[in-house]
Write a protein that binds this DNA or RNA. Structure first.
Length: 324
DNA sequence: AATCCCTACAACCGCGGGTAC
DNA sequence: GGTACCCGCGGTTGTAGGGAT
């Protein structure tokens, strides 16, 4: 049985999105919430594949996305998380709520890979990996503190980005910290950046008054994340905490930690249980065909954190490699 | 000024997991 | 249990911008 195409290839538009399309999509999501992407092209009249709509929303249009250069702190965090998690961009992005997995992936492929290559010159991959780890050699406590700091920083920045007055850049301000502007062919000076301001205006009111259809929103983990960020009210329509995402991340707990309802400075055992998104991700992470004998990554991580070894060079990468 | 090349990133594609029927 | 559908993820590609020649 061949997998059917996600959408009818005939008549489906491809390529860069225009501001008009963005507005159509944002308007639709405002009214209906993210999710049910299959219905989006039909209901909006957009001649786009449903996947394209979802991608456009999650990677570009949803509120709370930070654009522009990655900070040193973000960079180091990505390097460390990549060393720990591999190319699990979505998991890494869970630690950087303002960055999309696509952004992080691109940043890794264009910047960080090169740095890694430089470190690799004249050595095999494992020693290079150790070199990388050593170059960012940090103690257990430092690593945790850095994560906490990063999350706090992200939280603050996200808060700022979503604050009502701060969400709209001044008309004469620089667009999107260096983000490439888009000029619609034939539209002369109409830049994409100015259009995103309009979209931000649309979103402003929506973020302030999130759509009541939260049950629909709960289907999308990444989008729900931004919704919860925006409203700091992660309850479903019946007032109970929303369901866990498909990946097993308990978002309400994750955001409790992110937004300080509970201190992230919990014990390492709490860290390994459910306080961090990563910890939740790796609950039951071991492959089924490897049976119960395989140690879950979360346990490895916990053991590593607890056994007093001081830096990433001591992390059992070889064991974790079998898990992925 | 023209062109070539490199870089950055938005978007596409294919696949796998989850779920409803 | 099988099938179809939907969604999310990760790898890859296409292309515009900018620097180098």
């Amino acid at each position: 049985m061949g997998r059917p195409p996600c959408c009818d290839k005939v008549g489906v538009k491809k390529g860069p999105w225009t501001p008009e399309e963005d507005i159509m999509l944002v308007t639709y999501v405002q009214e209906h919430g993210p999710g049910n992407w299959r219905a989006v092209p039909d209901n909006t009249g957009l001649r786009r594949c449903s996947k394209s709509c979802r991608l456009r929303w999650t990677n570009y249009l949803r509120p709370g996305i930070k654009r522009g250069n990655f900070t040193d702190q973000e960079e180091k965090m990505i390097i460390q998380l990549q060393a720990l998690l591999g190319n699990k961009w979505a998991a890494i992005a869970a630690y950087l709520p303002e960055r999309t997995d696509n952004d992080i992936k691109n940043f890794w492929n264009t910047h960080l890979k090169k740095k890694l290559k430089k470190l690799q010159t004249g050595s095999d991959s494992s020693s290079a990996r150790n070199a990388l780890s050593s170059s960012h050699s940090i103690s257990k406590g430092q690593w945790e503190r850095r994560l906490q700091t990063d999350i706090k920083t992200a939280k603050q920045a996200l808060h700022d980005a979503l604050s009502l007055e701060g969400s709209i850049p001044a008309p004469d301000s620089k667009p999107c910290d260096g983000h490439r502007s888009y000029t619609e062919p034939g539209q002369g000076s109409s830049t994409y950046a100015s259009s995103t301001e309009n979209i931000a205006r649309l979103l402003k009111g929506w973020v302030k008054n999130p759509s009541p259809r939260k049950s629909e929103q709960s289907k999308s983990s990444s989008t729900q994340q931004s919704f919860c960020n925006a409203a700091t009210d992660c309850t479903s329509s019946d007032g109970t905490p929303s369901a866990e995402s498909k990946s097993g991340i308990d978002l309400s707990e994750a955001f409790e930690s992110l937004f300080g309802f509970e201190s992230f400075e919990s014990s390492t055992s709490e860290f390994s249980q459910s306080t961090s998104p990563e910890a939740s991700i790796f609950q039951g992470e071991s492959k089924p065909d490897q049976g119960g004998a395989q140690v879950p990554f979360s346990m490895l991580l916990e053991n590593w954190l607890l056994d007093g070894k001081d830096d990433l060079t001591n992390f059992p990468f070889e064991e974790t490699a079998n898990l992925f």
